[in-house]
C-alpha cells in the first residue's frame, strides 16, 4: 500500500492539521523559516525581537540549515536543504511554540510522544519529518525563492534564520498526529519484537562505561 499524499499550506487550518495521519506524505506551499539552536537561544534566552511576523507569515518551523551562500550583490544561492535532528531542541520548543504560534515543526527524527502530548497537542501542532534525511536536492527544488536571511551576522550562515518561499516542497512524512501519537515509536515497538532473536548468542560487554549509568556507585566491571 503506498502512502497518502497531501498538499498543505505553511499556515494551515486546524482542520487540515487534524486530518493528518501518521505516515502521510506531505508537500508544503508558502513561507517557512529555519530555526535551530542559535535562533532559539537568541530569541528565547537573549530575548531578541523575532524579525518576522509570526504566525501570520508562517507557522512552519524547519529544523534546518541549508547548503547556501549569500552572493556579493546580496542575493542568495540555495542548493540543498536538509533537516537536522530535532530531539535536541525540546528544551526550547514549548516556549517557542507559545511565542511563534508554530503549527508545523519540520525536522529529522521527530520528538517523543511525551513531547507531542505535552505541548504539540495543546497547541494544535504537528511534526513533519524529512524523508531519508538525505533528500536535500528534492527539497531544494521546492524552494521557489529565498526571501530573507536574519541574524546571519550574529549566528553565521548555518545557524541563521532563513526565510524560504516553498512550492510543493517535499516529501515530508507526518510523524505525529492530533492525539500526540508518534510514528517512530510505533515503528520501534514493532521492530523491538525481533530483538531477542537477533541478539541470541551475543555477549554483553565485559567492561561497562560511566555515562551509560548515572549511578556513580556502580563499578565498570
Amino acid at each position: 500500500m503506498s502512502p497518502r499524499k497531501i498538499r498543505l499550506s505553511t499556515t494551515p487550518t486546524q482542520e487540515a492539521l487534524d486530518d493528518l495521519q501518521l505516515g502521510d506524505i506531505v508537500y508544503l506551499d508558502g513561507l517557512m523559516y529555519t530555526a535551530r539552536e542559535g535562533v532559539y537561544k537568541r530569541a528565547l534566552e537573549e530575548k531578541a525581537n523575532i524579525p518576522m511576523e509570526l504566525p501570520r507569515d508562517s507557522a512552519a518551523n524547519f529544523h534546518c540549515s541549508p547548503a547556501a551562500r549569500i552572493n556579493a550583490d546580496g542575493s542568495f544561492e540555495m542548493g540543498a536543504v536538509t533537516a537536522t535532528a530535532s530531539f535536541r531542541f525540546s528544551k526550547w520548543l514549548p516556549e517557542w511554540m507559545e511565542k511563534s504560534g508554530a503549527k508545523l515543526i519540520i525536522g529529522k527524527g521527530g520528538m517523543s510522544s511525551k513531547d507531542y502530548k505535552s505541548y504539540f497537542v495543546p497547541n494544535g501542532a504537528i511534526y513533519l519529518s524529512t524523508v531519508g534525511y538525505g533528500t536535500g536536492a528534492l527539497l531544494g527544488r521546492g524552494v521557489e525563492n529565498v526571501e530573507a536571511v536574519h541574524w546571519n551576522e550574529e549566528l553565521g550562515l548555518a545557524q541563521a534564520m532563513w526565510v524560504i518561499r516553498c512550492k510543493e516542497m517535499g516529501p515530508f512524512i507526518v510523524a505525529s498526529d492530533k492525539h500526540g501519537d508518534c510514528l517512530f515509536e510505533r515503528e520501534n515497538a514493532k521492530i523491538s519484537q525481533n530483538f531477542d532473536k537477533i541478539y541470541e548468542g551475543t555477549r554483553p560487554a565485559t567492561l561497562k562505561r560511566y555515562g551509560e549509568t548515572d549511578d556513580r556507585s556502580d563499578e565498570v566491571i
Partner: peptide, 28 residues
C-alpha cells in the same frame, strides 16, 4: 511500505542532484 517509499525518494534525489548540479543533501 514506508521504507520502500524512503528508498525510492532517495533514488529520485540522487537524480535531482545530478540534473540540477546541487548538493544531494543539505548537510554536506
Amino acid at each position: 511500505d514506508l521504507s520502500s517509499f524512503v528508498l525510492q525518494a532517495m533514488l529520485e534525489n540522487y537524480e535531482a542532484a545530478k540534473e540540477d548540479r546541487r548538493a544531494m543533501c543539505g548537510d554536506t
